[in-house]
Nucleic acid binder design. Sequence first.
DNA 1: GTCGTTTGAGCCATCGAATG
DNA 2: CATTCGATGGCTCAAACGAC
Length: 446
Amino acid sequence: MDKKQQCDKKRKSSKEYKIRRHQLQSERISKTARKEAKEGKTYETGIGLNLEKETTVTTTGNNTDVDVDKIVMGITNNKQLYEDLMKLVPPFTERPAKEYLSHDPDKTYQFVLFDIETTCTGKQAEICQLSAICQNGDTFSSYILPNNSVGYYASKVNNLTVETINGQRTLCKDLKPVNSVSLQIALQTFIKFLQYQQNLIRPTCCTNTVENENLVTVLVGHNAATFDVPTLLRNAGNNFEEQLHSMKICFGDSLPLIRSLISNQHAPLKQSNGQFCKANLASVYKCLFDQDFDAHDALEDVIALKRILFSPEMSIDVKTIVDRSQISSVRAMKSDMEFIDFRHDRYQTFVGNLHCPNEDHSPISHGMALKIAGSGLSYSDLHNLWQKFGETGVVGILFMPSYNPKDTRSTPSDKNHPRVTKSKRILSNVVKYFQSCNVSNISTSS
DNA sequence: GTCGTTTGAGCCATCGAATG
DNA sequence: CATTCGATGGCTCAAACGAC
């Protein structure tokens, strides 16, 4: 009995068996799909006759379709070809794994809530205001004169503008001039503020005692992991980052914390209408205190955030905050930011060709363009593969697994994991795109 | 307007179990 | 042994939502 099962198992795990089964199933799936599509239109006609006709159409129709299985088999059986393809493209990249700090009862947590206002969003964003507040109520706030003007949408939100007054570029809040400093000055003042606050908790007399090891300072902002921290690190430079690192400062995000509370139906976040509030700052504040606050001034925002997190109305403990705020090291946030920027650069190369935003039939979706970009490939890499190896090149690189040389812990399960995707629909869409390029190139050039 | 993440629905690859 | 069925978990996508 066992022997028989094992034999069967072994047979099924063989490569040939899997490939054959895969082919058969693919055919079945496309057949049924076609049948269903047909049945929708001509339900009354003889099904058997229709099927016969359909299958003949299918086989001829497949000539224009892309036979992904065949291409994949060609590569799996040809190691040399696979290696030749690999030489043509940049090494595989992937997003750094997230590692969040979890609560340690032996440690003291010092939360510093912070927020920034900027000139716009995205990689171009410059910081115009940096504010922070500690649990003891001490605040820091500084306006910063950006090199560029404040964008239309950002200005609508934060009421900051850059005006020229007496020939001087001047940062204005609500059109009134404010004292602003350079980014470097603001950051250094901020560091001093943080050092001072740390020293309030760990006295300077015991610099090398256990006391030092036990203090964890966490900079928490709302949606900070996505917006504030990357923007801050991108603008600040290595010196600032090193200082934070040496002060053992970490970053946390209150958005996932709030989301987690809402999904756990944390009672204080239930509104009077019985629904739970949304996760944005204004909504949470309104729900807890039934008051509006002057949203989108960095200082007002951090004051509100402090009240939210530490008020008795909210009633959460330190362990909850630590465990659910996705606290990460400065280094981790920095390398994640670098990955995001790297991916974004490559993503842009797909826009307008393989990925057409706001069009009904873009060859690949936004998400897929991001995934390809994140694996280290740009449009020119795919184009190059297409020119040198045709569909084999493109499908081979996207489908076949790829190993990161830096990653020593490649488990057997990774061997089945594609560099980008195994989806036949997506792979054939990419191939079809390059085919149509060739056709249009010939027709336009001749 | 930008950009990134989460969410939930639907599709599809995969694999154990069953069939002839 | 070759094939098929059925359950499941992972992948993909668009929409909604967070930040400015």
